[in-house]
Amino acid sequence: MDWELIGESWPVLVAAIPETLVLAISSLAIGFVLAIGIAVLRLSDNRLAWAAAYGYVYVFRSTPLLVQIFLIYYGSGQFRPFFEDIGLWYFLRDPWFCAITALTLNTAAYASEIIRGGIQSVPWGQLEAARACGMSGLLLFRRIIFPIAIRQALPGYGNEIILMVKATSLASTITILEVTGEAKKIIAATWSPVEVFIIAGAIYLAINFAVTRIVQWAEVRLSPQLYRDRPSWFARLTGAGADTAGRSPAISDQLH
């Protein structure tokens, strides 16, 4: 184990974390919005809309992300005069734009299936009740369907976030120096893969650990009724009893 190399390379790799996070967060955010649209199309009665959404999801889930990235970044070069004419070349020659586009389109396909599952799990009774109150269209979706669907879809979406954090490493193949890109550069220069792998691997594990914690926190926040009679982690840590002062008694208390 070369401790000197570890000491020299960890600041470089830690400094590349923002690049990885920018790739992951921006593509997840845009992809999530797209995914909602695709999921709604897949559930619509319109055959054409259904077929378009189904085809999109099928194609993007059946091909490797690497091909999608190369197709956008290198493939667009073949039609450079055309893209220059319509003014898109400025974007397509930028690896950041291409990487985020590919990651966005890819995650939109996977996330739309997760969201579709969530929407389909919304109980009929809830919809009927909302309709009985006079809700319809966007109001029904915004107030009833979407919040319940998100709660159902959250665990699956947590997995998708982790897969996307891992997928950002592919951006290094089109010259972006995020954590994996920097790691490869150091490995190729020093031929000491183990040391670099340990640091870069620890960075990814730390990011993904944080993601799982945040998703767990969000799950509790979105379904507080399921966790009400459980002591908070702080209370469990300090050994104190559940802090339920000022709240309505938990279900288990009411039963006794």
Partner: peptide, 8 residues
């Protein structure tokens, strides 16, 4: 293996 990119 599930938390680290395959490329690495």
């Amino acid at each position: 293996i599930r938390g680290i990119p395959e490329l690495l």
